[in-house]
Amino acid sequence: MAGKVVKGDLDSRIFNFINMSLLLIFTFIIIIPIWNVLVSSFSSGRSLAEGGFVFWPQEFSMENYRAVFRDETIWQAFFISVAKTVIGAGTHVLFCAMVAYAYSKQNLRGRKLYSALGIITLFFSGGMIPTYLLIKSLGLLNSFWVYIIPALFSFFDVIILMNFFRNVPKSLEDSAKIDGAGDWRIFWSIYLPLSKPALATIALFNGVGQWNDFITTKLYVTDQALYPLQMKIYEIIVQSQTNTMQNIGGSVVIETTARGVQLATIVITTLPIILIYPLLQRHFISGMMLGAVKE
């Protein structure tokens, strides 16, 4: 791809100019709304109500953030979010890797059956209500483990890891077998260390999923002590929406105060994602290729 397009004739230069202009507009359309949220979160309630700024706060203020942190439950929510992300992603990737190791062996007895059962789960599921009834009968409602256990396994991730494991040189395994190592030993001391890039990719994606997930909470958790940050934002949104309804044509002060808190919480919740974003970006292109293009 490098150097495909060199300075060419007039036609080519016009094309480049239009292309670049459109892409610049596109980039602005992505950046400005995000920047606007960041700026608004540092604005006072009064300037939020008046509007009139886009790029820089008219009246710089930390009042929204102070209001967020005055609520002690925000720290608890932060803790729950971190715990479910770290524990969830860690256990998910180890569990899937274990299954993928066995599944990568062609001589595995019953492989066809395992394969068929796995593929069906990719295309069909019981859906919301039967799954809810199952979670309920397992006693996982209002338990921290509802974030972890049902999310342990994904056949899709197993396939990705299996493809990766198949590229591990067979000779390493053979010599370990001669030394008397069993499968568990080979998995743990040869395959896992050699597959760090693939494991990191899966763990990062799963971690982002855990961090961003609020459906699990919405469906299975009513205990506020177990709410993650995403659910906190959802609550604030619902709350401020109701206020907006009640205030149609009336005072906008309540609305904007709630909005300030909402914006500050959004920024706090998104910050960790932005911080690990460079790391994510290094991994996700290879990760997408692992999963989607079989050649």
């Binding site: 190791y101 069906i120 599921s125 859906g127």
Partner: peptide
Amino acid sequence: QWELQSMIIPGLIFMIIFSYIPMYGLLI
């Protein structure tokens, strides 16, 4: 190959519980 099987059976059990029991539950 009990070692290999002991690695894949937890996955099988997981699928039965979290995918196939809800599919059976569709009968409601």
